[in-house]
């Protein structure tokens, strides 16, 4: 019991407490809007991400061509080239099989985003549940879960993913599972730490004293109070998962070559770089860079915004 007490989070500095007491609490969304309007980069990041999400959702409606349609007669057309009638048929050019690069980029956004979000969803949910359990019950439960986390951390993630994908085979589902399961440790460690801090607080003591069940205390009492840091981590994590998907697809272990993904497009561009077909690498590379950068900028903002000690500084 003494050990549990020693793990409690130190009290917040007095000025923060004062800030929380003195300033009337504005609504969450209003504060968010004010915070965003005071800074520029998160707005730009949000716009870029909104565009990517829009493309991902409405890809089939807005893609100018079928992304998998092979037209050998139109292979390796450079971007912005006009045909004899003056029409720009392939705005961002075509690849070595005559497939429309723009359409593949749009469809690639679907795969990259959905892999990122679903994998983080799997990893986040699993990790949060395990961290919550470990932090709440402590003792042997905590030991077992944290040792499992240590074992997984001992493996470099990409190496682990390569091993699993070689055994299970490439494919979107396997990729999402591997990337998801690879992320749980981060969430588990944060959830555990936050839960340990929360479980010693008076409102939890009060809940216990009125006979609330463990599940009710964990999911209705503690969980809502530890979500903020987990959401921040998730926003960064989506970016790293998108990069991991691109890396694995580049290595030929991610999504099959018949499915358009940004990483896969980069991999296919290798054969054409020596022939100066720059557009095949530049456009998917830009898409990955802008999406990951936007997620990171937004994650930074979210971290500062949700941290009560930094409230008012962003």
């Amino acid at each position: 019991m003494a050990e549990k007490t020693s793990l409690a989070v130190p009290a917040a500095p007095p000025e923060v407490i004062r800030l929380q007491e003195d300033v009337p609490e504005a609504s969450f969304w209003r504060r968010a809007r004010h915070s965003l309007l005071r800074t520029r980069w998160p707005i730009l990041a949000l716009l870029i991400l909104s565009l990517v999400v829009f493309l991902a959702i409405f890809g089939p409606q807005i893609a100018p061509k079928d992304p998998n349609r092979i037209t050998l007669a139109a292979r390796l057309k450079p971007p912005f080239e006009r045909n004899a009638q003056g029409e720009m048929v392939y705005i961002l050019g075509t690849d070595s099989l005559g497939r429309d690069v723009l359409s593949r980029l749009i469809y690639g956004a679907r795969i990259s985003l959905s892999v990122g979000i679903v994998a983080v969803g799997i990893g986040g949910t699993l990790g949060t549940l395990l961290g919550l359990t470990a932090g709440y019950f402590g003792g042997r439960v905590d030991d077992v879960i944290m040792r499992l986390a240590d074992i997984q951390l001992a493996f470099p993630f990409i190496l682990l993913a390569i091993m699993v994908l070689v055994v299970l085979g490439a494919g979107v589902l396997n990729l999402v599972l591997v990337l998801g399961i690879g992320q749980w440790v981060t969430y588990a460690r944060i959830a555990r730490g936050e839960t340990m801090a929360q479980r010693e607080k008076e409102y939890i003591e009060a809940a216990r004293s009125i006979g609330a069940s463990h599940a009710r205390i964990m999911f209705r009492g503690i969980l809502p109070n530890i979500l903020a840091p987990l959401i921040v981590i998730a926003s960064f994590n989506v970016a790293s998962v998108i990069l991991a998907e691109a890396s694995l697809s580049f290595l030929g272990l991610g999504v099959p070559p018949t499915v358009p993904t940004w990483g896969g497009m980069l991999a296919e561009s290798r054969d054409q770089l020596l022939a100066n077909r720059w557009w095949l690498a530049v456009f998917p590379g830009l898409a990955i860079m802008l999406t990951v950068l936007s997620l990171n900028i937004l994650g930074d903002w979210l971290r500062d915004f949700l941290d009560p000690r930094l409230r008012g500084t962003v």
Partner: peptide, 17 residues
């Protein structure tokens, strides 16, 4: 298989098409 024969990945995808 991939990368065994000349341009095999592209040839195979074209045949599927």
């Amino acid at each position: 298989g991939r990368n065994r024969y000349l341009n095999d990945v592209n040839v195979v995808q074209t045949i599927c098409q």
